[in-house]
């Protein structure tokens, strides 16, 4: 069971801190858990893991292709490797290794991609992964997850470690808005129906869930009731939740911190077309590259913040 925070506020804790702490506690219980990185341990805040488990930590240096291959080999011997790099490099530079040595080979590799989309902020367009979810969604047998906030990451990480198979986890390094109460529980593959509504349903993931909830509040104050679904598992997709929303409101708005091509918007469109056609508006990066800026400025510029969602819902009702 999960519960929403009474009010959405920026977290006071970096997501990377939660990642490292939870992984540490898992590693204390399970000697097979290993951590790999490609010279971004400092950036990802995982030095405490290195300190406690030096023999199970492999900072491979700046060689992402080799790192995911080594992770696959470790998995062959029964280890559970978590391999981190920025999402851009995991999805683009090492895709062939992740596809073949990890996924096709049936291994148990946990791919951690950080600094997704607007969270890359001042690193700019070169470092802004807005295609990673779409890329990994296309890899058979890969589970693709974007934890919405710290509470969700804390709840999901043990499941990711416990379930055999390749997972892609799209993480934030710094802070992100807290949406869920600490101690909330989540089921991989099951979307969270956060609000029920009549006029439209907003389907969001990642940072955009907080924005959807903020937009919903404003719309509600104006007497417009909209539903909000947190679709944190992109694959396997909770098709039932999407179909039910389409049947209920017939008006779907997707919003993602990602290119609308191949991401959540595409995935939802596929379900709607096949099962339950409905009006669909997709918010996200519209076939454009990322750019440099502060996170919330970028959210505005890309049209994925609460204001943009509010406007999109209004427009859909015209």
């Amino acid at each position: 069971m999960y519960a929403l925070m009474d009010e959405i506020r920026e977290s006071t804790v970096d997501m990377r801190t939660v990642f490292c702490n939870v992984l540490l506690s898992l590693a204390r219980e399970n000697k097979d858990i290993c951590l790999l990185d490609a010279d971004l341990m400092g950036a990802m805040g995982t030095k405490p893991f290195l300190k406690e488990f030096p023999e199970r930590t492999f900072d491979c240096g700046i060689q992402e292709a080799n790192m995911f291959g080594v992770a696959a080999g470790l998995s062959v011997t029964g280890k559970i490797p978590f391999a981190h790099t920025f999402a851009v490099f995991a999805s683009r530079r090492a895709l062939d290794q992740i596809y073949l040595s990890c996924a096709y080979a049936g291994q148990n590799v946990k791919i951690i991609g950080s600094d997704c989309g607007i969270h890359a902020a001042l690193n700019g367009g070169t470092h802004m992964a807005i295609d990673d979810m779409g890329i990994f969604r296309a890899v058979p047998e890969m589970t693709v997850i974007e934890p919405t906030d710290n509470a969700m990451l804390e709840a999901l990480l043990p499941q990711v470690a416990a379930v055999y198979g390749c997972f892609y986890l799209r993480l934030v390094r710094r802070t992100t808005p807290d949406v869920y109460m600490p101690g909330s529980e989540f089921t991989i593959g099951k979307a969270n129906i956060l609000k029920e509504g009549e006029a439209a349903t907003i389907i969001a993931n990642g940072y955009c869930v907080s924005q959807a909830l903020l937009a919903e509040k404003r719309l509600k104050a104006e007497g417009i009731s909209v539903g909000v679904i947190d679709c944190f598992t992109l694959k396997p997709l909770d098709e039932r939740a999407i179909i039910q929303a389409a049947q209920k409101t017939g008006n779907i708005i997707t919003v993602e911190n990602h290119n609308t091509k191949n991401g959540l918007g595409s995935a939802v469109a596929e379900v709607l077309c096949e099962h339950s056609p409905a009006r669909l508006s997709r918010l996200g990066f519209i076939d454009r590259f990322g750019e440099v800026g502060k996170r919330d400025e970028l959210a505005g510029a890309m049209g994925i913040n609460a204001d943009a969602i509010y406007s999109a819902v209004k427009k859909s009702l015209e």
């Binding site: 292709a65 080799n66 995911f68 080999g73 073949l100 040595s101 096709y104 049936g106």
Partner: peptide, 18 residues
């Protein structure tokens, strides 16, 4: 599993390490 040249080298390192 191999077939994309170069990849077996890293996997072999991982196996030796594991």
């Amino acid at each position: 599993t191999t077939g994309s040249l170069g990849q077996g080298a890293s996997a072999a390192c991982g196996i030796a390490l594991g």
